[in-house]
């Protein structure tokens, strides 16, 4: 272990200390909370936790959350791909402004963005009275929840894809054009296959965040039990009513959904390891 033999190796004590620090951090900040969620959920046994989940209000919250994510994630994927494609493969006026705008939801507090929708669609807001006249409900209904979720998760896909697509440059697209491919054909056969792994990762992140969003949705949802409560909102409601098993059971389900997406991603990476390696090599 002397420094002479291994000039690139740090002293043993330093290595042990740094490793412990890293493992300690991960354990304390990531693993421990997850373990506690499941432990609390099963505090009164698996039966009780299961009952808390199949209770109608909880099921409704699961349904609202999944529905909102099922609408918001595909739309954001579509917007994200087009935005990244425009920014990375083309030059136009106001490009920097567009990139800043895409980042906006990351810098604005979710609660503020929720309030903005209240100002726009609320009864005292710009469009509220008109919408009410036509019996269209945005606030305290699914459309409001979807809008708030979309706003908060808007940057995920574009943010992941822009650096990736900028890094890949325009060479392959130019080659495709010179070989006679149309714009759509170029996108479908060349651009999309090159970004598919980054895209998958972005969609999974976007989905996880969409399911977990609390602040913005909390403002626009109205917390109507069994109607407009999402899973995170339902967790809060149960917790505030001292129903700890219920709260942690729904929280555990939410965590499980997140874990499932991660497992799904890992399986895909394992299944396509060769292709991934070939793509990463240049």
């Amino acid at each position: 272990m002397s420094g002479f033999k291994n000039p690139t190796r740090d002293p043993l004590a330093l290595r042990v200390a740094l490793t412990l620090l890293a493992v300690g951090f991960v354990g304390l900040l990531l693993v421990l909370p997850l373990v506690i969620v499941f432990k609390e959920a099963f505090a009164d046994g698996v039966g009780k936790a299961w009952e808390a989940i199949i209770e109608p209000d909880s099921l409704s919250a699961v349904k609202v959350s999944l529905l909102a994510a099922a609408i918001a994630v595909p739309l954001n994927t579509l917007f994200g791909i087009s935005a990244a494609w425009a920014v990375a493969k083309h030059d136009f006026r106001g490009k920097t402004f567009l990139v800043t705008l895409i980042d906006l939801p990351f810098s604005v507090s979710p609660v503020v963005s929720g309030l903005v929708y209240v100002l726009i669609f609320g009864m005292q807001g710009w469009f509220g009275p008109t919408l009410a006249d036509h019996d269209i409900h945005v606030l305290f209904a699914l459309p409001g929840i979807v809008l708030a979720t979309m706003f908060v998760t808007f940057p995920f896909v574009a943010r992941e894809l822009i650096p990736l697509m900028v890094d890949q440059g325009r060479d392959e697209e130019e080659a495709a054009t010179s070989l006679g491919a149309s714009g759509f054909s170029t996108f479908w056969r060349v651009t999309l296959p090159n970004i598919k792994w980054g895209l998958l990762y972005a969609v999974l992140l976007c989905n996880a965040r969409a399911l977990g969003e609390f602040g913005a949705v909390s403002v626009v949802s109205g917390h109507i039990r069994g109607q407009t409560n999402t899973m995170p909102l339902h967790v809060e409601l149960l917790y505030n009513n001292y129903d700890y098993v219920g709260a942690f059971a729904v929280a555990a389900l939410l965590a499980l959904l997140a874990l499932l997406t991660l497992i799904f991603k890992t399986i895909l990476e394992w299944r396509y390891a060769d292709e991934l390696a070939a793509m990463l090599r240049r």
């Binding site: 060479d171 392959e172 130019e174 080659a175 495709a176 054009t177 010179s178 070989l179 006679g180 491919a181 149309s182 056969r189 060349v190 296959p193 090159n194 292709e275 070939a278 793509m279 240049r282």
Partner: peptide, 19 residues
């Protein structure tokens, strides 16, 4: 338009389709 010219372009960095 470029795609109707049938101009075979060979790029400096080849620009082969990696996938």
């Amino acid at each position: 338009p470029a795609r109707e010219r049938k101009a075979g372009f060979v790029f400096q960095q080849y620009a082969l389709f990696k996938h």
